[in-house]
């Protein structure tokens, strides 16, 4: 069946079976491979994207369910509403989103596999709760697993990213 998805503010019409997962359309059809598949059992959160602004696991949603929604992946985060940090670093030469910049600054990653999901999840948190406490950050990230167990710097990065995002809004 043909479905039209709006991904990173651009409409794409793709042909896929009803049992196709959103993550598979993003990665295989649209080649947006920044969204990772870590566990495939709905636990690790590496596949987290925003659907209508809310973080969801794209391995636990059918592509056809996302047909009317606005989807943002890690590739589109820096050009979203709360935008750019002014710090370069993207593959296309563009600037990082403030949360991405905070992960880089705080070394909030080791192998980097869980990072796109962590950044997407953290951004959803900070948009809704601009000044989260450390406890709130840790509770929120329960759906994102880091196999390197580098949580300490990830939490530091989210707190710094929250401040940077809040700073922009003022």
């Amino acid at each position: 069946m043909a479905i039209t998805l709006r991904v990173n503010r651009q409409a794409h019409t793709v042909d896929c079976a009803p049992n196709t997962l959103l993550v598979d359309v993003l990665r295989e059809k649209l080649r947006l491979t920044g969204t990772h598949v870590g566990c495939d059992t709905s636990q690790c959160g590496a596949c987290t994207v925003h659907v209508d602004g809310r973080s969801v696991k794209s391995c636990t949603m059918l592509a056809v369910e996302a047909a009317d929604a606005e989807i943002t992946t890690i590739e589109g985060l820096a050009s979203s509403a709360d935008g750019s940090s002014g710090r370069s670093g993207l593959a296309d030469g563009g600037n990082l989103h403030p949360m991405q910049a905070a992960f880089q600054e705080c070394h909030g990653l080791q192998c980097g596999f869980c990072t796109p999901g962590m950044v997407m999840s953290a951004t959803d948190l900070c948009r809704r709760n601009p000044k989260p406490t450390e406890h709130e950050v840790r509770h929120w990230l329960e759906g994102n697993l880091c196999r390197c167990t580098g949580y300490h710097n990830i939490v530091k990065a989210v707190l710094a990213g929250a401040e940077a995002m809040g700073g922009k809004a003022k």
Partner: peptide, 9 residues
């Protein structure tokens, strides 16, 4: 319930 992503859906 579950985690943030599960609660969103």
């Amino acid at each position: 319930i579950g985690d943030a992503q599960v609660r969103n859906r």
